[in-house]
Design a protein around this nucleic acid. Sequence first.
DNA 1: TCAACATACATCAGTGACCGATACATATCA
DNA 2: TGATATGTATCGGTCACTGATGTATGTTGA
Lengths: 124, 124
Amino acid sequence: MYVDVMSSAALHEPTFLILAALAEGRKHGYGLIAEAETLSDGRVTLRVATLYTALDRLRKEGLIAPAGEEVIDGRLRRYYELTDDGAATLTQEIARMEQLAARATVRLRHRPGFAFGWGGGAWA
Amino acid sequence: MYVDVMSSAALHEPTFLILAALAEGRKHGYGLIAEAETLSDGRVTLRVATLYTALDRLRKEGLIAPAGEEVIDGRLRRYYELTDDGAATLTQEIARMEQLAARATVRLRHRPGFAFGWGGGAWA
DNA sequence: TCAACATACATCAGTGACCGATACATATCA
DNA sequence: TGATATGTATCGGTCACTGATGTATGTTGA
């Protein structure tokens, strides 16, 4: 299998959400859309075009793999699951995000004219 | 000024690095390339084409602003700085990344067949 | 009963951020 | 003097994402 081990290209958000959603276990297309919405607190709605092209691409890259088909209520479901390579990539991506977030936070605190209320910020 | 407050589109890595690099204070083009390289541990080299198109776009969006020009050793330097909107966007993006990273981590731990050694992982 | 809606699959053409290549100018170094 | 580093900037190509569209079945409500 051909795996670009040294790839450092950051995952786009929809792609990340697909891998993260599959981390729990196998899911089918529409299940992934629902899970991505949950993961992002409703911020991101996976579009079908994005989903199916991403699914195809990730399968070719060996990050996910088909995991059976079922017919539920007369409707076909195609399942996918994370491969070990996919889990490794996701792990790497999480580490990248955490490190960048941490470093950006430090720099923001050092910002000249740093203020606690910069207008429009919601601290929940 | 027109600001898309509810924008939920994730920043791409180069764009994020530019904003994060500017969080410390004003910087010029080549300074940003160096800072982005530092921030990403040498993983990401900002390309000039990416840099200048992003600088233009971010300026139009009001996230950064020109912050003076200088001539050092006969070479022109154009400086940029974060606007308050830019700092707010960066803050929001950091929160998004941290939340997604945390949630993805939880799901990965619940992964069926979860193993500690999945091949190729470097725990430093 | 039949139209509207939800579930579930899929494709096509357009957009926009990113990137390799290229260009120009000045300073330094071998 | 030719290569390398710093500094600016543009052009055309690639590719992930997206809006629109298509097909099919099951459910819900007037």
